[in-house]
Simulated assay, not measured.
Amino acid sequence: MRIETERLIITEFDMSMAQSVHLNSLDDDNRRFVPDEVFETVEAAAETIEFLMNCYKTGEGPLVYPVLLKDDTNIGYVQAVPLDNATWEIGYHIGADYTKKGYATEAVKAFLPVIMKQLDINEMTGVCLADNLASVKVMERCNFVKTFEGIGNYQGEQRRIYKFIFNAE
C-alpha cells in the first residue's frame, strides 16, 4: 500500500521503523488511551512490526500502516482492525510531537476509501474513550456518525465510550 496526500505518505512497515515506532508510542496520550500500543523498547516495537508485516501477507488484520511526512519522518499510524462480528474498526495515532496539525484527519480521510475497497466493505466502525477529544474531532471531521454514547467495553474495561460508524455509500 502507498497512499500520498499533500503532506503525508501512508505505506507499509519495514524493520527500519522500529526506533520511531517505539518513540511515537511513549507519549502520555498513547499511554492513556491505547496502553496496549505502547512499546517500552525498540525490540518490542520491532517484534510488533514483524507481526504486522506478516498481516499484510494474510490480509487478516490488524492492518496497520505507518504515517510518514514527505521527508519520511514516521509520525504515527492508521489501521483497520477486524472485530468479532465481521466488521472493521478504524484506529490511528499521531505522536505527540506532531499533533494539532491535522495529520490524523488527513491520514484517516485518505486511508478510508483505499482500505474499505481493499476489504470490500461499506462501513467502518470507530470507538474511542469519551474524554479523548482529539479522536472525537477526527471522527467527526472524517464524517463518522456517532451511534452510541455510554458505558461500554474498552480494552477489557467498562469505560465511557463513543461509537461511530462511517458509511461509504
Rank of each mutant, 00 (worst) to 15 (best):
H93S: 12
P35Y: 06
E157K: 04
M53S: 08
V145A: 12
D14T: 12
L63E: 14
A45Q: 04
Y65L: 05
E149M: 02
Q118K: 12
I90R: 00
F144T: 02
Y103E: 10
V21M: 09
Y154I: 01
A96W: 11
I75H: 06
A86F: 12
T87M: 14
A96Q: 12
D14N: 13
I90A: 15
E50G: 10
P66S: 09
I115G: 01
S16M: 04
E12M: 07
G152K: 00
P35I: 07
V136G: 07
N85F: 06
Y65H: 15
V138R: 00
G152F: 10
M53E: 13
E106Q: 03
H93K: 03
Y65N: 14
M116R: 07
P113Q: 07
G76A: 08
G95P: 09
L129V: 07
R2P: 01
L119K: 00
R159F: 08
F166C: 04
V108L: 07
G156K: 00
P66T: 04
I161K: 02
D71H: 01
L112Y: 07
Y162P: 02
K100R: 11
V64T: 15
G126S: 03
G102C: 05
N143V: 04
T125H: 11
L23F: 09
E123S: 01
Y154Q: 09
I10R: 05
R2L: 14
Q155R: 05
A46T: 00
N24V: 14
I161M: 07
V114Q: 04
G156F: 04
A134Q: 11
L26E: 15
N54G: 10
V38H: 13
E6T: 11
Q155I: 00
E50A: 11
N85I: 00
V78I: 08
I161L: 06
S20I: 01
S25Y: 13
T99E: 15
T48L: 11
D84C: 01
I115H: 02
N85T: 03
L68Q: 11
F39K: 00
L119Q: 04
I151D: 10
A134C: 10
T147S: 14
A104D: 15
Q158C: 04
A44R: 03
V67T: 06
A45V: 02
T125K: 07
G156L: 00
L112K: 07
V67E: 06
I161N: 11
A44F: 05
